[in-house]
């Protein structure tokens, strides 16, 4: 047997997946702007992504803000002033940690659930059933989820930012004995529009990635319960990797001079 055959097969399979994902992405985006729109599903997905992810996002950003405050105080103590700690917390939370952590949490919560739900619908022929009932499964299942992801992640991140900064504030006021008014003033003075804008942009892109990967993996899952399990894992792994890679690229885009 030719030793290149398996290599070739893996490569061809890879190309096929990339092609299929590209078509899926283009299709989803083009259906996003074409009627009919399913507002009920859109609304329930927005609640699922935005509202029910709040506790996890709040907890992760809160503790991250607290950790950053501690680290920047102890690590930078030689040049530390109240201003430095406040600004480091503000910067890391709004630019990086807020969007990335929220997206990773949502990937684990919502992306996985979407892959499992759509995967189950695929293997039990519910997706075929939609088609036979004159309903386009892309428009009915995929579009509302992706739109909800793009809209809700920035909102989640905005809330996460506030909570993260509040976490830093708690540490500074109650543990490091900073002056509360100074801390808030420092944070406010240091904050730039680009921090928020870049964070929100990242969040929207991550929201797209998470929901796209959840839907894509679910939509094309096959082979019963095992296939659904695989789809779920793939959705989470793929979206986590893509989040971190695109985070780097977006940071480069916004901040490299």
């Amino acid at each position: 047997m030719n030793i290149f055959a398996p290599v070739g097969r893996v490569f061809l399979n890879f190309l096929r997946s990339v092609g299929r994902l590209t078509i899926f992405t283009v299709k989803s985006l083009s259906f996003c702007v074409r009627p009919p729109f399913y507002f009920r599903t859109l609304f329930s997905q927005m609640v699922e992504i935005g509202f029910y992810s709040l506790p996890v996002v709040a907890l992760t950003t809160m503790f991250s803000g607290m950790v950053i405050a501690l680290q920047s105080y102890s690590g930078l103590s030689s040049l530390s002033s109240e201003g430095v700690v406040a600004s480091v917390v503000e910067l890391t939370v709004t630019r990086e940690l807020g969007p990335v952590l929220a997206a990773l949490m949502v990937a684990g919560r919502v992306g996985a659930a979407m892959a499992a739900e759509l995967g189950t619908m695929r293997v039990t022929e519910q997706i075929d059933a939609l088609t036979t009932l004159s309903t386009n499964p892309f428009k009915y299942l995929v579009v509302p989820r992706i739109l909800a992801g793009i809209v809700m992640l920035p909102i989640l991140v905005l809330i996460g930012d506030v909570i993260g900064i509040y976490g830093g504030y708690l540490i500074c006021i109650y543990k490091l004995d900073f002056n509360a008014v100074n801390y808030l003033r420092n944070t406010w003075n240091f904050m730039q529009a680009v921090d928020i804008v870049s964070g929100m942009t990242k969040a929207a892109v991550f929201g797209f990635i998470v929901t796209l990967m959840g839907c894509y993996n679910g939509f094309y899952s096959k082979g019963g319960a095992e296939g659904v399990g695989k789809a779920t894992t793939n959705a989470v792994v793929a979206s986590s990797i893509l989040i971190l890679i695109s985070n780097y690229m977006l940071t480069e885009l916004f901040f490299s001079k």
Partner: peptide
């Protein structure tokens, strides 16, 4: 497909909808 109907092997009912909503799905959507 608007003038065809299909009974699937495993029924393929939508889990998230109740039974009358399942039956009415093609009419509503």
């Amino acid at each position: 497909n608007a003038q065809t109907g299909m009974l699937f092997q495993g029924a393929a009912l939508f889990d998230s909808l109740n039974i009358w909503e399942n039956v009415a799905f093609g009419l509503i959507q």
